[in-house]
Design a protein around this nucleic acid. Sequence first.
DNA 1: CGTTCGAGTGAGTTTTTATCACATCAAGCC
DNA 2: GGCTTGATGTGATAAAAACTCACTCGAACG
Lengths: 295, 295
Amino acid sequence: MPITHLPLNALRAFEAAARLGSMNAAATELGVTHGAVSRHVKALEERFGLPLFERHPRAIVPTREGAQLASELAEAFDRMQIAVSRVQPGPLTLSCSSTVMMRWLIPRLEKFKRANQAIELRLNINYDNVDFIREEISLAIRTSIYRAPAGAVAETLIHEEIGPVCHPDYADRLGLSKPDDLLRARILGSATRPQAWTDWAAALGRPELRMTPNEVYAHFYLVIQAAACGLGLALAPRLLVDDEIRSGHLVAPLGFVAGPYELQLWIADHLRGRVDVRTTANWIRAEMRAMSATP
Amino acid sequence: MPITHLPLNALRAFEAAARLGSMNAAATELGVTHGAVSRHVKALEERFGLPLFERHPRAIVPTREGAQLASELAEAFDRMQIAVSRVQPGPLTLSCSSTVMMRWLIPRLEKFKRANQAIELRLNINYDNVDFIREEISLAIRTSIYRAPAGAVAETLIHEEIGPVCHPDYADRLGLSKPDDLLRARILGSATRPQAWTDWAAALGRPELRMTPNEVYAHFYLVIQAAACGLGLALAPRLLVDDEIRSGHLVAPLGFVAGPYELQLWIADHLRGRVDVRTTANWIRAEMRAMSATP
DNA sequence: CGTTCGAGTGAGTTTTTATCACATCAAGCC
DNA sequence: GGCTTGATGTGATAAAAACTCACTCGAACG
């Protein structure tokens, strides 16, 4: 079949259906009804003379050929998207967790905007993997718990230092000065990073300490907030509580130790040449360096 | 612009127009009228808000952005084509010059078909570069005068040996036994390989010999035919005249010398895994080896 | 100096694509 | 068992997109 007669729209619909495992979801992504997608897929199957999906009552599963075709098409569409984005550059999009956004980015955003008035910055909240091409992400700040996906390059920003933090009065009241004192305290945990306390115990060289959270919050910034309100102890990276410690809202009674992860900057591969991306990446690096320089 | 709303058909039309440098040509390739292509391109330019072509009275020239976009789109469409061809494998297509087809391939084709009845072979005539993806070529036989394009890998089949050939009576009549005797003879040339005689003189170590053809034929196989009919001397690779020499229709009064080129097999990169392609490539290699083994 | 060649365009037509509304099927659940 | 639910398939029809036709323009060609 020559390229000149490929049914491009049908291929796009099929690729979406295969990637999402659902005609309905594909239809939503494409902004059409499921019927339109269903027809596209059927047209393709008739044209190729082979089934691309196994139909089950509540699900569709790509056949061997379908899966292969879909994955190769995905690459082709990615390239197309990149090609177009080069003549139609969108805003710079920075993705980070809600916590990093709350406690690190937003406090510095005014300064960034003043220094880079020409850069239109769009923010995206996400703490794990993300498709840099489809979701048009330029930069992401992530911990090394996750691996940068294909299409992005990762670099180290800082090595995380972690430690328990709480309200100053709380630390005084419970007399917290060595790890074992913590067993008397209320331990606050985060759903997005369930292994945080265990990591810390391991980093201390006390893996036997059983630091099971008494309470688990949905977001990490809620844990910090709860600690600042005297509800217990949060296990936080220094980066995210430095301002609070400086202002006296929080203390770190046991200090900080080097944690097992680092904070990374992920850069969309195809955007590395863009001036605003380089500028913003440099700004992020500089701000991070400034943080780790002030103990 | 999200991938879900890319105007795929307009992008294809634009890519064709940019590649061919003409809306008309693109229209022909796509099987539509030039108006349709013109409208697609205009729609794209309006959507992007920038011109993709400079319009000149009889030509369109891609702008900087247009050229960039087109070349990246070409890659994306190539991939798409490859993806589809994997689920819809077409016939195996072998491309070679009309001369190689006449004098080497066709005489062996019957044998090939008998040995490989399952392989559907399509033939394509072309002696220089060719787009393996767009024109759906699997294998090509070429001299190393040309370089294999991106998307194909080249390997050596044989090193060409070249020498003047003519009808036996012609050689007798003119008494041809050393290079300088040829100055008395009628020199036949081919438009597709105008430097053949000069190459030979150089290979002999007699670059000063001015072997200017008295007559130039459009195709190389016509030159061989003319020589076989006693019209003069052809400068031929041994490969293409071996049968004629064996049967006594031609003689090579000065023998053959190693020429500056080799005969190559070009294989479409994305088809190297296909069984019929491997089989056919092996057959070609074996047949070529058989030729160079019999002096 | 008329002819030709290639592109742009208004109006109208054809083709494709999408919607709507309903059908189907089986899993999950009282 | 029988009802509900969630997902896909499809006939009829509406909407949108793509295409053609027939003409225009402008300059290069001969």
